[in-house]
Structure formats: structure tokens, C-alpha cells
């Protein structure tokens, strides 16, 4: 199969790549662009470890084709911090021990940021249902949910 040429924007920077027509965005990110922060836990959209933002919509990059990135704005975990300055969610995850092994963490953070961008004052239930597509096997979610709620409160306090 002939490869496809794709022009897109990733974490604010213009990017071009060639990919197979059937190649997932996750494989493009990991294997072609060396953006290995997005993880493959299942390849079927069930674990959320590959979560990215596609034009401000939260998606599983394993369920998206690389070709679909044409003309789009992609954001990944690698773009969440501002240089060496962590996003408040990243900082709160560290302070709250909201990660153990860390494999779900990138996807969890991308999903949590999408929630807070849309809903700056979520209830615990809203956080739990929003993150229901992101599996974590280590933490029992307790410290993750607390970290998201605490970050939301902190961001509201500053606003």
C-alpha cells in the first residue's frame, strides 16, 4: 500500500508524516514521531492509556487513524507541561501520589484536563464517570479522583 502524507499540528507545532492508510494514530505517535508518552494498554479503546485531544475532543488514539490527523490539532501528554513548568494536574498527581506504576497516568492526565477544561467545578460523581474510560489497576482511583477534585478547586481559586 502506498503511504499517505499527512500534515497536522501536534502540541502546537506543525508536523508532517507518512503513514499506512490502516495505521493508527497511536502507532504514528509512538513509532514514527517518538511521542511514546501515549501508551497502548489494549488497542481497542477500552483502557484510555492512549488518550489524546483531537481538535479539543478527547479520543483514544488507538481508535483513530493517522490519516485522520490531516489538518487537525492534536495534543498529547508531551504537550501538557509548559516547558519545565508542570500543569497543575501534573503537579497535583505528584503531590497526591495519584500514580503508582504510572502507565495509565498520561492518559489519565489528558482525560482529566479535558474534563476540567469543560467543567471547572465537577462533582466526585462527574469525575468518576468522566474517567470511567481510563483504567487504572494500581490505585483503586481514590487518589486520582481526589487529585482531580483538588486541582479543580485550586484552579478555581486562582481564577
Amino acid at each position: 500500500m502506498a503511504k499517505m502524507h499527512v500534515s497536522t499540528t501536534i502540541n502546537g507545532e506543525p508536523e508532517e508524516f507518512l503513514c499506512e492508510p490502516n495505521e493508527t494514530m497511536l502507532d504514528v505517535l509512538r513509532d514514527r514521531l517518538n511521542l511514546t508518552g501515549s501508551k497502548e494498554g489494549c488497542g481497542s479503546g477500552d483502557c484510555g492509556a492512549c488518550s489524546i485531544m483531537l481538535n479539543d475532543t478527547l479520543v483514544c488514539s488507538c481508535l483513530m487513524l493517522g490519516a485522520e490527523a490531516e489538518g487537525a490539532e492534536i495534543k498529547t501528554i508531551e504537550g501538557m507541561a509548559d516547558g519545565l513548568s508542570l500543569h497543575p494536574l501534573q503537579q497535583k498527581f505528584l503531590e497526591s501520589a495519584a500514580l503508582q506504576c504510572g502507565i495509565c497516568t498520561p492518559g489519565m492526565l489528558v482525560a482529566a484536563k479535558a474534563l476540567l477544561d469543560e467543567n471547572p467545578d465537577p462533582t466526585e460523581t462527574e469525575v468518576r464517570f468522566w474517567l470511567a474510560g481510563n483504567l487504572c489497576r494500581c490505585t483503586g482511583y481514590d487518589k486520582i479522583v481526589r487529585a482531580v477534585l483538588d486541582t479543580a478547586e485550586e484552579i478555581r481559586g486562582k481564577a
Binding site: R30, L35, T36, G37, S38, K39, E40, T76, I77, E78, M80, A81, L86, Q90, Q91, F93, L94, E95, A97, L99, G102, I103, T105, P106, L109
Partner: peptide, 19 residues
């Protein structure tokens, strides 16, 4: 409750897992 030494890598996607 100190911040873990490997934490910054893990919240930025830089930590290197096997794959």
C-alpha cells in the same frame, strides 16, 4: 509524603516503559 523521585518523568510521558 514526599514527591517520588521518578514522578516528574511519569506525569510528562517521559518515563520509559518496556515498549
Amino acid at each position: 509524603r514526599t514527591i517520588r523521585p521518578d514522578g516528574a518523568d511519569k506525569v510528562t510521558g517521559r518515563a520509559s516503559f518496556a515498549a
